[in-house]
């Protein structure tokens, strides 16, 4: 399978008042057509920055990007905003975290929906409107004809997220980037939205990236999962392998913090103690060392590389967890 989207050693730094902020530190990832990749990491680990920078949405004097980002073999990083815009919507589309803020509050659903069809695909207004209704039906919205006359304010969170998903797929993108698509929703709605995304991916054959800080969310929907910590990929494996043969102490800690649906009442959630490193400070140590219960002196003086254990399961640790025998 040839890669649809490839990140190679992507680095993103911000100039801040405190100094250079390292948000993404050399990430290499690839997504094949039709594949679903989950990106998991704590808040601040650089998930959003990584995808926005890769897409070229993040730019400006204070943003430094390096490395390589290729979409269907075309290098995106050096492109101007105008050039890269041609990919947006039609090739790569995004679903945002908060459907509350990601829809324009002062425009009707219909008009902010159809504009992309008119502007990008050159449809005429009537055709675009028909297509909007069709798409809304596709995301299982009731009474789509009425919906288009409404403002985002008049919809519930889950409905809005579905509208946003419908908007994202409007121009048949080859890749859908969903940045925490369910964080702002309540649990039952979360499941529906994820179900919908999976469904659409299959129907439309899109590649998909689901970004989340909750391993549980991607567990059932992604083919592979990359765990991000302090701007680095620390573990990358197929979903099965990641759960079955967790190698990273960090991932282990993350897994323990998942609220289990079958968990007994009163069982306390084990959050990871301590905080991720300051993205401005430079350190040679393993970034997880201060919080790692397996950390040794070596972990505090050297930086581990991302290694393949031979099965395509990658990890970044001097003392990986034992893989249970298969």
């Amino acid at each position: 399978m040839s890669a649809l989207f490839e990140l190679e050693n992507l680095r993103v730094q911000f100039d801040t008042k405190r100094g250079k902020l390292h948000a993404v530190r050399g990430v290499t990832l690839h997504i094949a057509a039709g594949e679903c990749l989950g990106i998991v990491g704590e808040s601040g680990s650089g998930k959003t920055v990584m995808w926005r920078a890769a897409m070229g949405l993040l730019r400006g004097k204070k943003v430094h990007r390096s490395g390589s980002v290729r979409f269907s073999g075309r290098e995106l990083l050096p492109m101007s905003a105008k050039e890269v815009r041609h990919f947006w919507g039609t090739e790569i589309a995004m679903v945002f975290q908060d459907p509350m803020t990601a829809l324009n509050p002062v425009r009707r659903i219909g008009s902010q929906f159809s504009e992309a069809l008119v502007k990008r695909l050159g449809m005429d207004k009537a055709a675009a409107n028909e297509r909007v209704v069709e798409l809304l039906r596709l995301v299982r919205m009731p009474e789509p004809e009425k919906l288009v006359r409404k403002y985002p304010l008049q919809l519930s969170g889950g409905m809005r997220q579905r509208v946003m998903i419908a908007m994202a797929i409007a121009c048949n993108p080859k890749l859908l980037l969903a940045d925490e698509p369910t964080t702002a929703l309540d649990v039952t709605v979360q499941a529906q939205v994820l179900e919908l995304l999976s469904d659409l991916r299959e129907k439309l054959g899109m590649g998909m990236v689901i970004v989340t800080h909750d391993l549980g969310i991607v567990a059932g929907h992604s083919d592979r999962i990359a765990v991000l910590y302090a701007g680095e990929v620390v573990e990358l494996a197929t979903t099965r392998s990641l759960f079955a043969r967790t190698r990273m102490p960090y991932t282990e800690a993350l897994l323990k913090s998942i609220p289990r649906l079958d968990g007994k009442r009163g069982e306390t959630l084990q959050a990871i103690e301590g905080a991720p490193p300051d993205p401005v400070a430079q350190t040679v140590a393993c970034f997880f060392a201060p919080r790692c219960r397996y950390a040794t002196e070596k972990c505090r003086t050297e930086h581990p590389e991302l290694l393949d254990d031979g099965t395509g399961h990658w990890y970044r640790c001097f003392y990986p967890l034992k893989a249970p025998a298969q």
Binding site: R52, M55, L57, A81, R85, H86, F87, W88, G89, T90, A93, M94, F96, Q97, D98, T101, A102, L103, N104, P105, V106, R107, Q112, E115, A116, K119, R120, M164, M167, A170, C171
Partner: peptide, 23 residues
Amino acid sequence: DFVTMASSKGLSNMWILWRHVLR
């Protein structure tokens, strides 16, 4: 966010400024 959302749809800056940001 909705401005970023609008640009992620590949709309031109002018369109976004006039149709999304102005009002």
